[in-house]
Design a protein around this nucleic acid. Structure first.
Lengths: 196, 196
DNA sequence: TTCATTTCTTGATATAGGTCAATGTCCACG
DNA sequence: CGTGGACATTGACCTATATCAAGAAATGAA
């Protein structure tokens, strides 16, 4: 599991063996069965997770009991409720669970801070990472406000084709903010367009 | 202008006078008339801006020439295209302009990095800031995907009542992803509800 | 393999919100 | 002060997408 984490980091900065060893002491490896929760709404988020195998998702439940998927996290992605983690009083509004049998590395806030102090490159990489996410979120906001359901689906396919292939359609619909029925119809329409 | 920046920082960390003086060397003060651009689509973003007076906004233009407002930035807010700034090759997809006569402090990437090296508290504060924004963006995504136009309007009023009062309605509509006509009707409906 | 459960598809119908067009209101600026 | 241009309101109509309902297909456990 840790080798995945190492090579993830080393796409940007080389680690000494000492650094890598130190890193390993900070994470808690954990296997998760499909459907198992890392965290539920109302809990206080304790850990952020780096996914080394499988796929997790985070979602919220609206007042009508409907799920809205916020993020998918396959291998090499981070998933966490940073808000609740950073603010140990705030209860999380997110559920996070595994949608495949998965393996994750957990890290708590204190360890994460230790990591940033000890390996300054990590702090930089981390900051760049959240900045990039921020930009991606802005794009998603704009497209959710202005693009049609089909356009949003196409964008997703283009950007995350690997994810699209491994998740059930109704989850993708939830992520895109459309009903499963509409997604089904869009796909049908698209496939007929291609044939002509 | 700089005193606004100072007190903004000092809500979290006290600055020595030396630190404050150093800080001042890194920012470029600039006055902006209503309607003036800080940056246009296609340009390479050079500066991030801290608003000390007035209000700016960032927006994208879609393929049909329609504007979609991404962010408002009144006093004490940052506004920038971090993506294009961090990646000096990438052309920005954003317009940023002043919607009131405004005053801003500009900072380029190099200076920002110098600031983070020199005042480590700044780095931490900055990271926490973008993390918080991230969480806010997630909320906006979920609500844009699942809430009705009226709900989104109400949320905005609750969260940013001061902004709501000073911007033109059609800009708020653009931010919320609804047409100006719909916003007008929602407001009418809400006011009649209150009277009953 | 078989049965049960979950997921996907399809049709019929309803509705939130968009678009277009006309009118009303309010300033800013000569 | 008037008046032109931006902004807001209102009405009529239209369309994308939701919802409800039923059946088909896929998946997986025994």
């Amino acid at each position: 599991m840790f080798d995945i984490l190492r090579s993830y980091f080393e796409t940007k900065n080389k680690l000494t063996d000492d650094q890598f060893e130190f890193m390993q002491t900070l994470f808690i490896p954990r296997k998760m069965k499909k459907g198992e929760f890392l965290q539920r709404e109302g809990e206080i988020a304790k850990y952020g997770a780096f996914v080394t195998k499988g796929c997790l998702r985070s979602y919220v439940m609206d007042t009508k009991g409907k799920e809205h998927i916020v993020q998918f996290a396959p291998e090499n992605w981070w998933i966490s409720d940073t808000e609740s983690m950073a603010n140990p009083l705030s209860h999380s509004r997110y559920f996070i669970d595994a949608i495949e049998n998965s393996e994750v590395l957990l890290i708590d806030l204190a360890s994460q801070e230790k990591l940033m102090e000890t390996i300054p490159e990590f702090a930089i990489q981390y900051r760049q990472g959240i900045q990039k996410r921020n930009a991606a979120k802005d794009k998603r906001i704009v497209s959710s406000l202005s693009a049609t359901a089909e356009e949003r689906y196409q964008e997703f396919l283009k950007k995350y084709s690997t994810i699209a292939q491994r998740i059930p359609q109704h989850m993708l619909a939830s992520y895109l903010g459309i009903s499963p029925e509409t997604l089904s119809r869009i796909r049908k329409q698209m496939s007929s367009k291609k044939i002509i």
